[in-house]
């Protein structure tokens, strides 16, 4: 009899969680997003070095239009790969666990992620327009961190810790303008990979 009650309680807990949180997020998505960011960041770093531009000092930061456009495209490519891998691994995981993927939880998660990210995107576009390039890396870290914390209620709540770390990095990088690329690579590359591995191990 008590076994049945115990099972009842487990059933209740699982239903509450499954219906209110998106739990098909795969750790592998994080790892591959991190790898894409590492690749993109390294490419930009090498490109600047070959051009003789010292990214690490904010002075003398004059960039030609073509170069800005190129880096913008690199950023879009990184975003594209990160999202594609993210969707792919998430689909895989939800299929494996036989969980429906397009539920109101999924929509809530996406909306809550998208709002801060979209504002951040517009903000960065304005920075580009005003040639305030040194602020772009800190801004992406800050808005991304806020987006993660905002979406925490709708998926594994551990993503808020990733959010806090991104915010710390973003704030720190504001005081080291010119070293933004370094912070960006740590925040989007290294942290994603580490976090992805932790998530993967924990919820396998």
């Amino acid at each position: 009899m008590t076994d049945k009650h115990q099972e009842d309680l487990m059933h209740i807990r699982s239903m509450m969680e499954r219906s209110s949180r998106f739990i098909s997020l795969s750790g592998l998505s994080g790892v591959f997003a991190g790898l894409s960011a590492l690749a993109g960041g390294t490419y930009v770093y090498i490109r600047l070095k070959n051009l003789g531009v010292d990214y690490l000092t904010s002075e003398n930061a004059y960039y030609e239009k073509e170069l800005v456009l190129e880096f913008f495209l690199v950023a879009l490519a990184v975003l594209f790969f990160a999202i594609t891998f993210g969707i792919y691994f998430t689909f895989q995981k939800s299929k494996k666990n036989n969980h429906p993927i397009w539920t109101s939880t999924t929509k809530n998660l996406l909306i809550n992620l998208t709002i801060p990210l979209f504002v951040g995107f517009v903000f960065c576009l304005s920075l580009l327009m005003h040639h305030l390039f040194v602020f772009i890396a800190p801004a992406t870290l800050l808005f991304y961190g806020l987006a993660l914390i905002n979406a925490e209620k709708y998926t594994f709540s551990d993503i808020k810790y990733l959010g806090y770390l991104e915010l710390l990095l973003g704030m720190a990088s504001l005081f080291f303008l010119g070293k933004g690329l370094l912070f960006w690579i740590i925040g989007f590359g290294v942290l994603h990979i580490l976090y992805g591995i932790i998530l993967f191990k924990k919820y396998k």
Partner: peptide
């Protein structure tokens, strides 16, 4: 019943839930 437990658990942590979604969750 397990189904009733499920319905109540889901509704306790959500606002309106429609039939199709409830069906696939349970």
């Amino acid at each position: 019943s397990r189904v009733r437990l499920g319905i109540m658990s889901i509704l306790l942590v959500n606002d309106w839930v429609d039939f199709t979604e409830m069906k696939s969750l349970l």
